[in-house]
């Protein structure tokens, strides 16, 4: 394994750290702007609970059994879930690497499987985006760049866990991903939560969510 050193960091680690700071600043900019703008004052007489609506929005409202986007497209939905789990795990891994924490041999093996699974599902999503006429129509360069950056990030994370020599390349790829994140569609990392809060609040206010049984 590579010897991680938090005091004497390698040049590529400094680059990654710089990219991380830029990324966090960029995402913070988006988040602060949303918080400063706040939520809509609703002058209509409230019929339900916005809090319950927001809670439902993140729970039952995302239940794949009730969402056509999920149950009509199960392979895509499952791919998406695996992909995002792998991304979150790999982000944690990035921080572990940067802070010099070694996950250990057996954990590394499991984590590499997770990262590679994410990369495979990501590749599947990329192929689908290229082949499916609907997705091809909707896609722009940003969609492909974002997906490619994440796939490379996942592959290199998996490789680094197995072949430590890949570590510098992983850090450089991570830096690129982090720098791009606040600019393109990857910023949905922030806006996803805001969207579900707005939706839950909207439906909760009108007593649409959570749905009541007839």
């Amino acid at each position: 394994m590579v010897v991680y050193n938090t005091v004497l960091m390698y040049w590529f680690e400094w680059i990654a750290l710089g990219a991380l700071l830029i990324c966090l600043s960029g995402l913070a900019y988006h988040m602060i702007r949303l918080i400063r703008l706040g939520v809509q004052d609703d002058y209509s007489a409230r019929a339900g609970s916005p809090v319950a609506g927001v809670f439902y929005s993140f729970t039952g409202g995302m239940d794949p059994r009730h969402k056509e986007s999920a149950y009509l497209n199960l392979p895509t939905y499952v791919s998406g879930v695996i992909f995002h789990i792998a991304v979150f795990v790999t982000i944690v891994l990035f921080f572990l690497f940067l802070t010099g924490v070694n996950p250990g041999q057996s954990a590394s093996l499991i984590l590499s499987v997770v990262a590679f699974s994410g990369a495979v599902t990501g590749a599947g999503m990329l192929i689908k985006r290229l082949r499916d006429p609907k997705l091809r129509y909707l896609s722009n360069a940003d969609d492909f760049i974002s997906l490619l950056l994440v796939i490379v990030f996942l592959i290199l994370a998996g490789l680094t866990l197995l072949i430590p020599a890949a570590y510098p390349v992983f850090m450089l790829a991570s830096s690129l991903l982090l720098l791009y994140m606040p600019l393109g569609k990857l910023r949905h990392a922030v806006y996803f939560f805001a969207a579900r809060i707005h939706l839950g609040r909207f439906y909760g206010w009108r007593n649409v969510w959570p749905p009541r049984k007839v």
Binding site: L37, Q40, E68, S69, L135, L138, K185, Y191, A194, A195
Partner: peptide
């Protein structure tokens, strides 16, 4: 003239997954 974050949020959230087509 954004009065709140609702429009900003929804303009920046779509990931072009295309799954809404079925609905």
């Amino acid at each position: 003239q954004l009065h709140d974050s609702k429009l900003l949020t929804h303009l920046n959230s779509c990931v072009h997954c295309g799954l809404c087509a079925d609905s």
